[in-house]
Design a protein around this nucleic acid. Structure first.
Length: 320
DNA sequence: GGACAGGAAGTCC
DNA sequence: GGACTTCCTGTC
């Protein structure tokens, strides 16, 4: 009672091996927010996915009745995600929006067992095997390209806590207010804001951005916004380029975007799984476990995914 | 307790 | 190779 089953006609068995049906619970008395429920979800760990450093705008929901719940704003919408065993709940959405947006955003259109198999078939490195095992369930998100450009420009010479704070301030100051009616129990107790548009960043100007504590990166953000507005930087064009190196070259025309930031943007916003960001952590990983080898092409088309697991592994070990 | 140095998902000049 | 904003951490 009170919910609708979206059976196999909503399911694309070829591209969507994890999702057999969607159960939709619309807003009704006693249920202040619409949500969907998906069964048989495998290789998806919400906490690891949102804690592995690819995304800075999702936080755990305090006092959740689920095992784990994370909420945040992405693509201009406030949602929360919870998991119970192999069942995934997504609050503040509906089946159509899930299929259009969140399935891709969450990487649920990708078969991770195949990715694990491919990576492990190319390398017998024990640290890599341990990293894949420890990080099992991390999915590479497909985030908004503009937000990802700004996030990783801000990430340089910075730490994750401060990156989160700056992005939150930027959004609250220059972003549009986002509706999260009925989401009080799902991290929606306070006002939520979309990430500011290129126009909003450009209009704010460098001085105002400095006031928001972005420091020397203010000029970089202003440059990025100007390039998007001027049409010199076209995310659809980048998306269409088959060669990842050619994509990186486009992104690196932005001031403040070098090899590492470009690779992060390609991996986290364009699902270019071969993009391999090398930061100080991964530099240490390559020294320690790979004899300092910087040629990661031997890890294959999913080298970037392997990188994210190694990153999570190394940081987890530090926290032990 | 508080000052201080060192470091943080890098890039530019 | 040095500078860059700001903030957090560890050390004394």
């Amino acid at each position: 009672m009170g919910f609708l089953k979206f059976a196999p006609y909503y399911s694309d068995r070829k591209k969507n091996m994890n999702i057999n049906n969607i159960e939709y619970h619309p807003v009704q008395p006693g249920c202040p927010v619409g949500y969907i429920r998906l069964d048989n979800i495998v290789d998806f760990d919400i906490a690891k996915t949102f804690d592995c450093g690819q995304c800075f705008r999702f936080e755990p929901v305090e006092g959740t009745r689920h095992e784990v719940e994370f909420a945040g704003v992405a693509h201009g919408k406030h949602i929360s995600l919870a998991i119970e065993g192999n069942t995934l709940y997504i609050y503040n959405t509906n089946p159509g929006e899930f299929l259009r947006l969140w399935r891709r955003y969450l990487g649920l259109d990708t078969d991770y067992s195949e990715i694990y198999r491919d990576i492990l078939s190319r390398s017998d490195n024990p640290a890599l095997a341990r990293a894949l095992s420890l990080g099992r369930g991390i999915r590479i998100l497909r985030q908004d390209p503009w937000e990802t450009v700004c996030s990783f420009i801000i990430s340089q010479n910075n730490n994750i806590g401060r990156i989160k704070k700056i992005l939150s301030t930027l959004s609250a100051t220059l972003g549009e207010r986002v509706v999260c009616r009925g989401m009080e129990e799902h991290g929606g107790g306070v006002a939520k804001y979309a990430f500011p548009t290129p126009r909003a960043i450009a209009a704010a100007g460098e001085e105002a951005l400095r006031g928001l504590k972005v420091g020397f990166r203010a000029g970089y953000l202003a440059d990025a916004a100007a390039r998007v507005l001027g049409g010199e930087l076209d995310f659809d064009y980048i998306e269409s380029l088959p060669d990842t190196a050619a994509c990186a070259a486009q992104l690196k025309t932005i001031k403040g975007v070098g090899d590492k930031v470009a690779a992060c943007i390609l991996l986290f916003a364009f699902s270019r799984y071969d993009a391999f960001p090398v930061d100080v952590w991964i530099g240490r990983v390559l020294e320690k476990y790979f004899d300092g080898c910087r040629d990661t092409s031997c890890l294959g088309p999913y080298a970037g995914v392997a990188q994210q697991y190694l990153f999570y592994y190394e940081r987890y070990k530090k926290g032990e």
